[in-house]
């Protein structure tokens, strides 16, 4: 009898816990009740346990790549785990010259990206917290009236999932959502630090051109962000586009006059052009700003020595345009 009462109590309680719709209250005023569905998002049915490669292929294709899940299997599938790791999906995105961006773990942010036209790769836990069943799917839309999320999932092209159930499976997997951005594309809700770090990661694996486009977008969006300018300088330095690089380093120093790494790299660039006195002057200026315990002081001194050596090397070429340079970076 008490057990029956308990069950009734639970039904009442869970009834309360699951109150109201999830989606509608999160939508901006005016746009409520409008269905969002990115119907053009390609669908790739998963085979075997390979929802990771399938989900990533859909996002890469949506971002203009022609990659197939078969191409992705050797890059992201772990045979002994019969699945794919989040970090490897991120890494494979870089390999294809796209910028992986992990969104804030909020359903409102996920909905915002969908509204902006971007499908979101999501990790779900379809099992228990103690016995997880991990699954990747692609969120492609939502229906406020029915309170449903629209997914590409497994072998189902258009899976409608109750929003509260989706929330539970998503939050039990850490509310992890991944955007695959074309270089230069910014998410709807973007954090400068996260975006610039993602661009730097793209740069660090050799996607110099793509990273450069991401930094360019970042400098346009946050003109006073010194790190974005610095990254833009580095990518163009590596591409041999020294004029753009020089401008970017100077912008980094305008945004942050104490940016030692920017002084260092500007000096390297000036030396590469054959402007040795200007390079040395830049380094001297930076060294004056350092404290003895600055971790970059050693690097600046190393660079100073190297510029001196190059200046004295037989056959050192001097750029005649150097005379036009002011001594101020």
């Amino acid at each position: 009898m008490s057990r029956f009462a308990g069950i009734l109590l639970v039904l009442a309680l869970t009834g309360c816990a699951g109150t109201g719709p999830v989606i509608s209250p999160l939508l901006p005023a005016g746009s409520s009740e409008a269905v969002v569905e990115l119907g053009a998002t390609p669908f790739v049915a998963q085979t075997d346990y390979q929802c990771g490669p399938a989900a990533l292929a859909m996002l890469l294709q949506a971002a203009g790549s022609r990659v197939t899940p078969t191409d992705l299997v050797p890059a992201v599938y772990l045979p002994a785990r019969q699945g794919s790791l989040q970090l490897e999906l991120i890494a494979a995105t870089r390999r294809h010259g796209r910028l992986p961006y992990v969104i804030e773990p909020l359903i409102s942010v996920l909905l915002e990206e969908l509204r902006a036209g971007r499908p979101v790769l999501v990790l779900q836990n379809l099992g228990l917290r103690s016995h997880p069943v991990w699954h990747y799917a692609v969120a492609v839309g939502y229906r406020p009236e029915a309170d449903e999320i629209i997914l590409r999932s497994g072998t189902t092209r258009r899976k409608l999932m109750d929003a509260s159930r989706f929330m539970r499976t998503w939050e039990n997997a850490g509310a992890w959502g991944l955007l695959v951005l074309r270089p230069g594309e910014l998410p709807a809700r973007v954090d400068p630090g996260t975006y610039i770090r993602a661009a730097a990661d793209l740069e660090s694996v050799g996607q110099t051109r793509a990273a450069g486009e991401a930094y360019a977008a970042a400098t346009a969006h946050w003109p006073d962000n010194a790190t974005a300018w610095f990254g833009l300088g580095n990518t163009h330095y590596h591409l041999g586009e020294l004029e753009v690089a020089e401008h970017a380093y100077r912008q980094a120093l305008r945004a942050d006059p104490g940016y030692l790494a920017a002084y260092n790299n500007l000096a390297m660039l000036l030396a590469r052009r054959g402007c040795y006195p200007a390079a040395l002057a830049t380094l001297e200026q930076a060294l004056e700003l350092t404290r003895p315990d600055d971790s970059l002081r050693g690097t600046l001194l190393e660079t100073y020595r190297e510029v001196l050596q190059r200046q004295r090397a037989p056959g050192a070429q001097v750029d005649p345009a150097c005379n036009d340079l002011g001594q101020q970076p």
Partner: peptide
């Protein structure tokens, strides 16, 4: 294509990190 930070995260934890498999 993994960054240094990601390598550090993966190292010795591969067996415990979620590996999304699927529903089939």
């Amino acid at each position: 294509v993994l960054t240094d930070a990601e390598i550090a995260q993966l190292n010795h934890r591969i067996d415990n990190l979620p590996a999304g498999a699927g529903v089939l």
